[in-house]
Design a protein around this nucleic acid. Structure first.
Length: 483
RNA sequence: GCAGCGUUCGUAUAGCGGUUAGUACACCGCCCUUUCACGGCGGGUGCACGGGUUCGAUUCCCGUACGCUGUACCA
């Protein structure tokens, strides 16, 4: 039987980076086994539903580089793929459970439930639905239940969890996991608004959609026994489970907004490359045991194995992500990145530049920065003449005799027909040798007058990209203002 | 509180009974050099603790501690 997995997000907002990793692992696992990865939208909570979220989630998955074999947009033979369009299915399945005694009607109001929990907490008990005393099918009896139902009294359907025995299942990541049935709550399966809860919808859909492996976050581990009970009640075969370690904040809590960026959009907008982000999160919680860090999607697919997924949560190391982004930055063809730079440049008040020029600037500066978007600030002088000059740098390298040392270079540069890195290098070396001065007494002043900053790429390379005319203009102005 | 899960340098991890405990990021130092960066070389720090099992435990078992997640008519 071929592998079928699903990514099942709730459209409640932007796609969380942890969600992206869950989607990625599902995708990698499916593709590794030549199976299918489907997208299912779990929009059963009407109170948290966000209209634009579904599109945002799909867009981000697409950006990240994985496409689903089935889903709400592309369809498929197991659709519909939005749970809100499958409500009848859940209702009929809930009825099956009622009929075979695995579930029951409950009529308790939110207030009654709240009171019950308060009582339990006061008594030092674990909050848990007590079906022996609440208002439900078992305490009310069939006749009264049917009467209330006929009258249209709001009701929910709850899972009848046995009071004794153990529920065990095996998890690919964690091995054998055992829960005592008495610790498991009589979970609501069908809400009084007619929508299913996650538990029912999830199990019904996973079965109907012939999902073979449920790969999801560790936060679902405690509710897995409920799902097992459901599979048994329906008489269905269980899928294999794999609960992924959580992505953590530096303080080890579940990765959240308070500690910084958590949405895929945030990373995209910051300028992270999709490939770098994917590479990085793939390695948060899983490692192919190779002494290397850079893997293409194809390579990730080839080596992915759920058995090698780690058990412990992984702290998200932003610094390392940046490093990885730079690795990709340096590996790309500058010409491909040039349009992106032009796009970023639009938000600055710089004169327009050509694609060719943008590519040259990228090539010049990318070893020193992590993002394309850093270029306009880190290398502002590549687009506009410096208006301010680093005071500290100037104090260190612009001495009384400097002007006299530099001035002759204007003429030398002017006569140059080849304004290349090499040519500039040769000519300046010849000059310093003849004048018996150290190269640094020339290089630093040049950098100062041309860029205004003390950090940047190699000086001659920078000059080459800037071009003869521009370099000479900057030198002349500076020389005039700094005799 | 209860339940489950987890614990190798600061971080991500390799390790699957015997290793000088490896790698990457970060950090520090040196080299290269035209500043920064890149690159090269080197350094420091780590198996949570206590019991077993074993000739031998980072590795297997049991506790303890700590952490995390869950405990909703949310997912």
């Amino acid at each position: 039987m071929s592998v079928r997995v699903r990514f099942a997000p709730s459209p409640t907002g932007f796609l969380h980076i942890g969600g992206l990793r869950t989607a990625l692992y599902n995708y990698l696992f499916a593709k590794h086994h030549g199976g299918e990865c489907i997208l299912r939208i779990e929009d059963t909570d009407q109170t948290r539903y966000v209209e634009s979220a579904e599109k945002a989630i799909i867009d981000m998955c697409q950006w990240a580089g994985f496409d689903f074999d089935e889903g709400p947009e592309q369809g498929g033979k197991f659709g519909p793929y939005r749970q809100s369009e499958r409500t009848e299915l859940y209702q009929t399945h809930a009825s099956i459970l009622i009929e075979n005694g695995a579930a029951y009607y409950a009529f308790d109001t939110a207030e009654e439930l709240e009171k019950m929990r308060e009582r339990q907490q006061k008594a030092g008990l674990a909050p848990k639905y007590d079906r022996t005393i609440m208002r439900n099918q078992t305490t009310l009896g069939e006749e009264e239940t049917n009467r209330l139902l006929a009258e249209g009294e709001p009701s929910a359907i709850r899972l009848k969890v046995p009071h004794t025995g153990d529920i065990r299942f095996s998890d690919i990541v964690r091995g054998e996991v055992v829960f005592a049935a008495r610790d498991i709550d009589d979970q609501v399966l069908l809400k009084s608004d007619g929508y299913p809860t996650y538990h029912l919808a999830n199990v019904v859909d996973d079965h109907l959609m012939e999902i073979t492996h449920v790969i999801r976050g560790e936060e679902w581990l405690p509710s897995t026994p409920k799902h097992c009970l459901l599979y048994e009640a329906f008489g269905w075969e269980k899928p294999k489970f794999a609960h992924l370690p959580l992505l953590l904040n530096p303080d080890k809590s579940k990765m959240s907004k308070r500690h910084g960026d958590v949405f895929v959009e945030d990373f995209k907008n910051k300028g992270f490359f999709a490939e770098a982000l994917v590479n990085f999160i793939a390695l948060c919680g899983w490692n192919p045991s190779a002494d290397r860090e850079i893997f293409s999607m194809k390579e990730l697919i080839e080596s992915f194995a759920l058995e090698k997924v780690n058990k412990a949560g992984a702290i998200f190391d932003y610094k390392k992500l940046e490093w990885m982004n730079n690795q990709y930055f340096r590996s790309y063809d500058p010409a491909v990145l040039a349009p992106e730079l032009l796009e970023v440049l639009k938000t600055y008040d710089y004169p327009t530049v050509s694609l060719e020029y943008a590519a040259q600037v990228i090539k010049l500066l990318r070893e020193r920065i992590s993002f394309v978007a850093d270029i306009p600030t880190f290398g502002d002088y590549m687009f506009v003449r410096p208006t301010s000059f680093d005071e500290e740098y100037k104090g260190k390298h612009w001495k009384p005799e400097t002007n006299a040392n530099i001035a002759p270079l204007v003429g030398i540069f002017e006569s140059l027909s080849d304004f290349s890195n090499q040519s500039l290098h040769d000519v300046v070396h010849a000059y310093t040798t003849e004048k018996q001065i150290a190269l640094k007494f020339i290089i630093h002043p040049l950098r100062l007058m041309i860029t205004g900053k003390q950090v940047g790429a190699g000086m001659f390379e920078t000059m080459e990209v800037l071009g003869k005319e521009e370099v000479l203009a900057r030198m002349k102005v500076f020389l005039e203002n700094n005799p």
